[in-house]
Amino acid sequence: MAVSANTQDLQWHRSLAQKWFLELVHKTMAAQLSTRSGSKLSGQRPGSAELDLNRQMAQSNDPQGMYIVGADGTPYGFTNDHEPADISRLMDDGLKRFRTHPPRPVTISAAEKAAAFSITPPPTAQVLQVFARIPAPPSTCSVLNNGIGRDFCWVYAAEQKTIARLAQGPKGTAFVLPATLVRRIARFHLVDDVRGTPNMWEASEIRSAQLSAQILSPTQLQLSGRFDLKTASGRRGYTGKLEGTLELAPTTGQWTRLRLLADGTAFGAGTFTPNQPPAPYRLLVGFLNTSLPESRIVPPEEVATYNRTTRYQSP
């Protein structure tokens, strides 16, 4: 069974899942220390120690990577590599160790199964998928720029109700979307997360952010706006326009279809997102409504990082 989880939840937040995971980390580190090369539980090439979990933890206190593990917490493999040959080697070696030393039977209680390990959105919140892309990055820059940034955005019930009420105005008129929603999008989602974890914008770094809706009908809105985001040092920024459409359910005002695109020019590196294309480069950030099951489990990056919604809900 393949499982994916947020290291921030499993490392920093207090939960039963965190306790289980950190025990696994310590067992993996101990097993790697039992050999000189540190490669006993890794998919790296024999004699190489650069992927050793002990070294990784000493350098950055970061246990992220790929683990092969039994249900009882027995470690069978680890790597923080993405080279296909190394991953295949990791899986083959891990399977051999699993067969040689199978895990002991364990019982997972109902309380453990039901325990949440991250903050989830309110039942009434509308969740949006967020994607970031750098279209056609130069072939001379890092291949990481060909990736896709992903996140979830929460729209709270009060914001939905305000928009539904304002949408009842005369056809052709326009209104401004709630400031909390506009600033949340600007601060925490108009970011370059293509190459890794991005820096969120501070409140003072929002030079301007506007998003308006023109009423096509009580259930159809045309969205448009602009944004200008820049650090105080002027070393990182993102400026552009927002365009999209929003469809509302006739009776409830819930969002049945959203398509919103930010198209702009970015420059500068984030703390954990270096190797960006030469400045300036085009950055696209798209938003669309979703009903994916994981959208009700995985919190936005800002919420996951700080394990609270204070800044996110009132940016």
Rank of each mutant, 00 (worst) to 15 (best):
G244E: 01
A158I: 05
F287S: 08
K230I: 15
V298F: 00
V25I: 04
Q313A: 14
S142N: 11
Q32D: 02
P122H: 14
E50T: 12
A209Y: 00
P274L: 00
Y238V: 12
T140I: 13
D193T: 10
T28D: 01
Q8T: 12
S109Q: 04
P103W: 01
I163E: 07
L24Q: 00
P138G: 07
A186C: 08
S15G: 04
D192F: 02
N80K: 08
N145E: 11
I163G: 03
E112I: 09
A249V: 12
Y76W: 00
L216G: 08
S217G: 09
A111V: 11
P102F: 03
M1N: 11
A266K: 15
L292M: 10
P300H: 02
I68T: 06
P293S: 05
A179K: 15
E247I: 10
T239E: 14
T162F: 05
G149K: 00
L229G: 07
V127T: 14
A71Q: 08
P250A: 00
D62F: 03
G270T: 14
W255N: 07
P121M: 05
R308Y: 02
Q64V: 12
Q44R: 07
Q56G: 13
Q210M: 12
T100M: 13
L248E: 01
G237R: 02
N146T: 15
R187N: 04
V3D: 05
D9Y: 01
E23H: 09
I68Q: 06
N307C: 07
C153E: 13
L24N: 03
T162N: 11
I297E: 11
G147H: 13
S204W: 08
P63A: 02
W12P: 02
A158F: 03
R99N: 14
T309G: 02
R133E: 07
Q168M: 11
R187H: 04
E159R: 05
H189T: 15
R282A: 02
I87T: 03
G270K: 09
L166H: 12
S204C: 07
S109V: 04
T271G: 09
A203S: 15
S314M: 13
I215V: 15
Q254D: 15
R184P: 12
P122Y: 09
A266F: 05
S15Q: 05
C141T: 15
V191D: 05
P280N: 06
L33H: 07
P218S: 13
N54L: 04
A111Y: 05
Y67V: 07
D62E: 01
E205A: 05
A116S: 15
L258S: 10
C153Q: 14
L181A: 12
D93N: 13
D52Q: 13
G268I: 10
I206Y: 00
T252H: 04
I68P: 00
P135H: 05
S4P: 03
A125P: 06
P46H: 01
V194S: 01
S48N: 11
S139G: 12
K241D: 15
D263N: 14
R55L: 03
L33A: 12
R97Y: 04
A132E: 09
I297V: 14
T305D: 11
T251M: 13
A2F: 09
T124W: 02
S48C: 09
T180P: 07
C153Y: 07
S48P: 09
V25D: 03
H82T: 14
Q56M: 10
Q210Y: 08
A115H: 13
A2E: 10
T309R: 10
C153H: 12
L144S: 09
S217Q: 07
T180G: 09
A167Q: 07
A2N: 10
